[in-house]
Design a protein around this nucleic acid. Structure first.
Lengths: 129, 129
DNA sequence: CTTGACCTTCCCCTGTACTGGAAGGTCCAA
DNA sequence: TTGGACCTTCCAGTACAGGGGAAGGTCAAG
């Protein structure tokens, strides 16, 4: 199948497909005599995997690592478990940071809505921040 | 004061100061006869404001908006309150998204540690994702 | 035979907040 | 006068995941 068909079938764009090839996520496909890319239909499930992994927050670099292990003939199980653990730790850290920031901003906002605004000080630009 | 002194006094870098000037956060300072930037000390409190605002998660573009209102002679109170409200809504949305993602990833990880890894399917690359 | 839809490679652009470095000018002390 | 520390402008690059568009080749239908 040609790149446009694959793009439609997989829900991506032709740009993304060429980009994935450059990035090592898709193997270079066969070419027709005239140079068009000629994909085998199995690539669709590979692209589904890429999309599911992206939904789990993995970067393309991490997804490529998994695919390379898999393409090397091994099951990437342990590596995937490690990536998921790392990702979970990342998420916990990010969530904690955002919650701390949320508390700060909520306090600033509370101050900004209750304090008398006429007492602004030209020097500090804004008394709320 | 020269740009190096200001950088030291305000805890930023000379690079950042020139960048802020280009970005419209700092007014172009006086110049010495030889072309050196010659800052007045009041810029320090402006830089403090920029830093506090960044700590609250505002972008430089948003900070510039506040400064432009202030520089226009008005108190930016209402605008700041709006920005803080928007920021709070942003944070709530981001936190909710991350928590949903965290639940998904936690489920994937749980599956990955309990399911028999020998039943991998070559077609789908990895049965956990 | 020509039109239009598709394909190729190529390079630049997006947003964020800067950092690094090159090439050259300035200032002050020894 | 020379050296080093400072300053100037401008160009390029960082990470991420592609998007936009140019210039040109290809294929099937009318």
């Amino acid at each position: 199948m040609r790149i446009g068909e694959l793009a439609e079938a997989s829900g991506t764009s032709t740009k993304a497909l060429r980009f994935y090839e450059d990035a090592g996520l898709l193997p270079p496909p066969e070419r027709t005599r005239s140079g068009y890319r000629d994909y085998s239909p199995e690539v669709i499930s590979r692209l589904d995997f890429i999309r599911r992994s992206q939904s789990a927050g993995l970067t393309l670099a991490q997804i490529r690592e998994i695919l390379e292990i898999r393409d090397g003939g091994q099951a990437p199980c342990a590596h995937v478990q490690q990536l998921l653990s790392d990702r979970l730790a990342d998420l916990d850290r990010q969530i904690a940071e955002l919650q701390a920031l949320r508390a700060t901003v909520a306090q600033l906002k509370a101050d900004a809505t209750t304090v008398d605004p006429t007492r602004c000080d030209a020097q500090s630009v804004c008394r709320y921040l």
